[in-house]
């Protein structure tokens, strides 16, 4: 699951290089959404900010 956004980013860069701007930006958005999903999974425990 954590590997997936790296691969979508790699694909987005590749599509950009191939002159396909719109699909590249769509893949960028997909990558960012995946980052948010994974972040939501990992950012769960309470912060220990009070003494």
């Amino acid at each position: 699951m954590m590997t997936l956004p790296f691969l979508t980013f790699a694909l987005a860069f590749w599509l950009g290089w191939k002159n396909r701007r719109k699909p590249a930006i769509i893949l960028f958005v997909v990558s960012i959404l995946l980052v948010i999903v994974v972040a939501k999974y990992h950012i769960t425990n309470e912060l220990n900010l009070q003494f």
């Binding site: 954590m2 956004p5 790296f6 980013f9 987005a12 860069f13 950009g16 960028f28 990558s31 960012i32 980052v35 994974v38 972040a39 990992h42 950012i43």
Partner: peptide
């Protein structure tokens, strides 16, 4: 979280 930060660096470069 470190890996997520790396991913955001890729977004910055994109």
């Amino acid at each position: 979280l470190c890996l997520l930060q790396r991913l955001c660096f890729f977004g910055l470069m994109f």
